[in-house]
């Protein structure tokens, strides 16, 4: 019987020998999550800004909808998109199910509420006088917007890292939407799930180590940024 220590040694060997299949899986994970977060950030930022600075009807409703989305489990997001994208579903024409695009869509849906909610909190942490000072000093709306974002940069960075941390480690939606297809949609979490179901722990542990290192790095950065968010009046 392969012991835990043996599996771990094998895992480290896999990681450091540059095992092509392993690193391909890691690459797919990062690629999909980077694309998802890149697409999700601009609209999420606009939403956060609108929630902070505009008073439009339905604003409170939007905030509660977003908070609700925050706590929706990933598998439910996966299921919803699955139904939409499946051949029998309304968007079946696009033939997106079990592609990386479907995974990206799922991860966008998962990261958007975090980005919007944490972005909203970060922007709320910026004194309203920042916007007004910018405007009265002659900045147009766009420049004032980027100034406020600059003032909130640490909080916004924390939102980004938190969202990224969630989607890159998420298994439910990726499995349902991507299908865990080798070379195409197999990412770190789905590969771990698969290796465990095969009873092959080495690769699972190797990928787990990658996620642990990533989680540690993200948390270290997060702590750093949160420590520096300081609206001194």
């Amino acid at each position: 019987m392969e012991s835990l220590s043996e599996s771990t040694v094998n895992a480290l060997a896999l990681l450091f020998s540059g095992n092509a299949e392993l690193w391909e899986i890691i690459g797919i994970s990062f690629r999909v999550s980077f694309i998802a977060i890149t697409v999700a950030v601009p609209p999420a930022l606009m939403t956060a800004f609108a929630l902070t600075y505009l008073h439009f009807p339905g604003r409170r409703l939007l905030i509660s909808i977003n908070s609700t989305l925050l706590s929706v489990p990933a598998v439910v997001v996966g299921l919803t998109l699955y139904i939409l994208l499946s051949r029998q579903g309304p968007l079946g024409e696009w033939k997106l199910l079990f592609t990386q695009t479907a995974m990206v869509l799922g991860q966008i849906a998962l990261s958007f509420p975090i980005l919007a909610a944490m972005g909203h909190a970060a922007l709320q942490g910026v004194d309203r006088r920042a916007w007004e000072t910018a405007r009265t000093l002659g900045a147009g709306p766009l420049r004032a917007f980027s100034t406020v974002i600059r003032e909130a940069r640490f909080g916004l960075m924390a939102a980004l890292l938190a969202a990224f941390g969630r989607i890159i480690a998420e298994v439910g939606a990726s499995m349902m939407l991507g299908g865990n297809i080798l070379h195409y949609t197999r990412n770190i979490p789905t590969a771990i799930a698969l290796e465990t179901s095969k009873g092959e722990f080495s690769q699972g542990i190797a990928l787990g180590i990658v996620l642990l290192v990533l989680a540690f790095t993200l948390n270290a950065l997060l702590q750093n940024f949160q420590g520096r968010g300081h609206p001194v009046s």
């Binding site: 007004e132 000072t133 009265t136 000093l137 003032e151």
Partner: peptide, 16 residues
Amino acid sequence: LLEQTLYLHQQPYMFD
């Protein structure tokens, strides 16, 4: 008004 006037808050805001 934004072009012609400048408003100074009671406690001035300093950008980071």
